[in-house]
Amino acid sequence: MADPLVIETSDLRKRYGAAEALRGLALAVPKGSIFGFLGRNGAGKTTTIKILLGMAHASGGDARVFGLPAGSPAAGVEIRRRTGFAGEEKDLYDYMTVAEIVRFTAAFYPRWRRDLEQRYRRAFDLPADRKVKALSRGMRTKLALLLALSRGAELLVLDEPTSGLDPAASEEVLQALVSHVGSEEMTVFFSSHQIADVEQIADRIAIVDRGRTVVAGSLDDMRASYRRIQFVFAGDAPEMTFRAPGVVRTHRQGRVWSVLASGGADAIVEEARALHPVSVDVMPVALKDIFLETVAAED
């Protein structure tokens, strides 16, 4: 009983001139999930989002939203009819007022949700007659989010939805997202640098690095299987290559061997016991550490 995939990419490639932004990126976002998309700046997150919504053209590979090909102009219209988007820059029409841009956007969506629009107008405290250019960064973000949430869309694609927001505003945004998924048949796909936000509300994530997916899966599975294992030896920690699968990173310093494992911690512990460590510590790993260790260091 597989969930249909709302977003699916395979071997997605994109080059800008000589630079390869995406090198075969794979994504699988099931319906009804809140999917966190993590990666360093320049890893390819925004490029991927643009390709999914028809703002940029892939150089190779396949990208589908609702099963439709993201690269076709006609399918693109259908995709965008069912998707709410808010970009990283939260750029909106400076010269329109809040009320005007809401009316403008609503005209494109027959399934526009007046009830949600009212709710968020109140909750986000957006003054109807203020011009967009006179709004603060935080208010612009909330407006962009309101415009995305009120479309009556099945999918929300958000690039850095909480960036630049203070913790209270950020929490309001997360609450709006959570409430959306709860009550509608909706999927949320968002990229973020705020790992804490992702950990709080996402049930699935993908970490992308240099144009490729390096980690993907359910956050709960990762919490259950990722472990940091620390071995302390009597003398200097010995050289060791592990046969057991699941070793992501190892770090040797003095008497201590530190291993980040994506799974199979007990097999790794078994293997290391042959070297007679003095102590073995197995600890859970926070998403931030998984991120930092699986993403390449500065080239």
């Binding site: 703002m55 102009p73 965008r80 970009g87 820059e89 909106l92 400076d94």
Partner: peptide, 15 residues
């Protein structure tokens, strides 16, 4: 014109 991505996120073709 600015806000290009917002315009392009609407269900209208570039044509």
């Amino acid at each position: 014109g600015g806000a290009a991505l917002f315009t392009l996120s609407l269900p209208a073709t570039r044509r």
